[in-house]
Design a protein around this nucleic acid. Structure first.
Lengths: 110, 110
DNA sequence: TCCAATGTTGCATATTTTGGAAACATTGCA
DNA sequence: TGCAATGTTTCCAAAATATGCAACATTGGA
């Protein structure tokens, strides 16, 4: 358990921590289509603007989104779309496994 | 923002939450090689057995690992290795982006 | 300059997560 | 049965996180 390994795990856990909230996952999925400003995104998702801003700040700190100022508003855009693919992959594997266990548990259903 | 979408985001956020701790990431990477029992894994990673057990329980609840009883010990094994590959992908994308921004910020360095 | 629009930050509160110690449960063996 | 090994659960205190509101900062336009 060297220092380098620990550092890597902390970095990755940081990425996952940023993703560990339903609203932030939804935000990323929304950003997948096009860039949004805080204001519109907050309205579309039914959030206080301060809450939306803070969630986006976390995503940005993790490096998952990036910003660009446009006049008075700030445009957020997705950096690594593959992150969402990962979610789909993990979900698929987990659900497949779960289904397999059910089939073993209930073999008479066929 | 229909109910189904929200449900999906909650499920995915649950997976990410299970991954949102350096020690749990390290545990998954360790389990990638071979199955481990709680006892050995706790010793190898320098954890209290109760702490290791709780981390593993979280990973199991998320569906990321599975267990098999062998006498007095419980063997934990990885379910979805693709999660770790995804982590590597996300990390790569984020670091690449970060590097790109630094190059823009310091263009005279070349 | 003044104001409106947009975001961010600070604060208070409530909730969740974490780690450690001890108690408890289960299993296999003498 | 009694005991040792292995895991899980419970309780507690500390730390981290989430939310909503208000205050503040920045920008562009009247």
């Amino acid at each position: 358990m060297d220092q380098r390994t620990l550092r890597r795990c902390e970095f990755r856990a940081g990425i996952f921590k940023a993703l560990a909230h339903p609203m932030r996952v939804l935000m990323l999925e929304t950003l997948k289509e096009k860039p949004w400003c805080v204001c519109e995104l907050a309205f579309a998702l039914g959030l206080e603007k301060s809450v939306a801003s803070k969630h986006l700040a976390q995503l940005k700190a993790a490096g998952l989104v990036d910003t660009e100022k446009r006049g008075t508003l700030v445009e957020y855009r997705l950096v690594a779309p593959c992150v969402l693919d990962v979610a789909a992959c993990a979900e698929g594997a987990i659900l497949a496994k779960r289904r397999a266990k059910l089939d073993i548990a209930l073999p008479l259903r066929s």
